[in-house]
Nucleic acid binder design. Sequence first.
DNA 1: GTTAGTGTGTTATGTTATAACATGTAATGA
DNA 2: TCATTACATGTTATAACATAACACACTAAC
Lengths: 167, 167
Amino acid sequence: MKKKKKNENSSKIFLGHDHGVCFGDAITQIEDYFIKKKLQLTPLRRKVFEILIEDHKPLGAYEILEKLGKTGFSSSPPIAYRVLDFLIVHGFVHKVQGLNGFIACSNPNHSHFPTFVICRKCEKVAEVSEEKSGLKLPSPEISNFKIEKTTIELTGICSTCENAEIR
Amino acid sequence: MKKKKKNENSSKIFLGHDHGVCFGDAITQIEDYFIKKKLQLTPLRRKVFEILIEDHKPLGAYEILEKLGKTGFSSSPPIAYRVLDFLIVHGFVHKVQGLNGFIACSNPNHSHFPTFVICRKCEKVAEVSEEKSGLKLPSPEISNFKIEKTTIELTGICSTCENAEIR
DNA sequence: GTTAGTGTGTTATGTTATAACATGTAATGA
DNA sequence: TCATTACATGTTATAACATAACACACTAAC
Ligand SMILES: [Zn+2]
Ligand SMILES: [Zn+2]
Ligand SMILES: [Zn+2]
Ligand SMILES: [Zn+2]
């Protein structure tokens, strides 16, 4: 039998939240991953991840630092940038270039090339998987180029905000 | 003698330069566009565009400022950022987010959603059109989101650099 | 118990971008 | 004619984002 599943969601990528994992799940996932990979999920790293997963929207490094400071950690810039780099390398955080912000991955624990859909008005950001976005990358052979990392960000206006616009 | 067709390059997007318009052409194109749209191609705007088209690679705002300073213009930051914004709005320049750099458009004068292919080793950057990239954006209706602007950047290693790598 | 690797902290600095205000010039139109 | 507007450029100061370099503690390995 054919699956219609995919298209059900794809018609409203930007509605609701496409939060594959929610708070508890996310913490469990990162714990498991760190154990499996023999990495240290230190209090600092855990805190930074919690800050990001909490309201699951992009935060600037300095916003994160402020929150860290309030919970007893150092709030000097290298602290945040180092931990963020680490979490990015291991796929639990992405950088949203267009906002100079950092966001918890919606579907971590596997390598992927996500698309970020960003409403310029309400500033909501959705992470959309390759399948759902309908976006297909060029095959490496064709482009004669080995893709290691992608930055794909679609900025515009979500239907909610568009309907609310007067112009 | 026939002219080489564009798709001859499409199997090697990243080789040679995918420079749809070269220096003279580019200047002519921007002149025509500005006249048609009744915009002022002032000496400053022209100079910034010339700087970018000259070696057609991404330059930082402060690199551009330095070059401006050497030719008698002001070299205070707002000068560059304002002109760059203007040229971006009118489609003659793109920002390469991954490099905090600005690059002259390879195929200006029409609206498009280009892909930038960036070699992390030689730092060459190619602007690839939607057709050539093989990359297809989700249709607006499907995503329930009106795309106004895209940032699509593929970072990795070009075949030339890969062949030269020891590892 | 020395060494190497890792994680966090600190100070200082580098890089990228914008806010706010000032001046000049040309077109518009009471 | 002379205000009004629009626009282009210039200046100063500062904001926002990011990294270099060094210090110190902890642990595991040798
Ligand atoms: Zn993700
Ligand atoms: Zn919105
Ligand atoms: Zn272009
Ligand atoms: Zn290369």
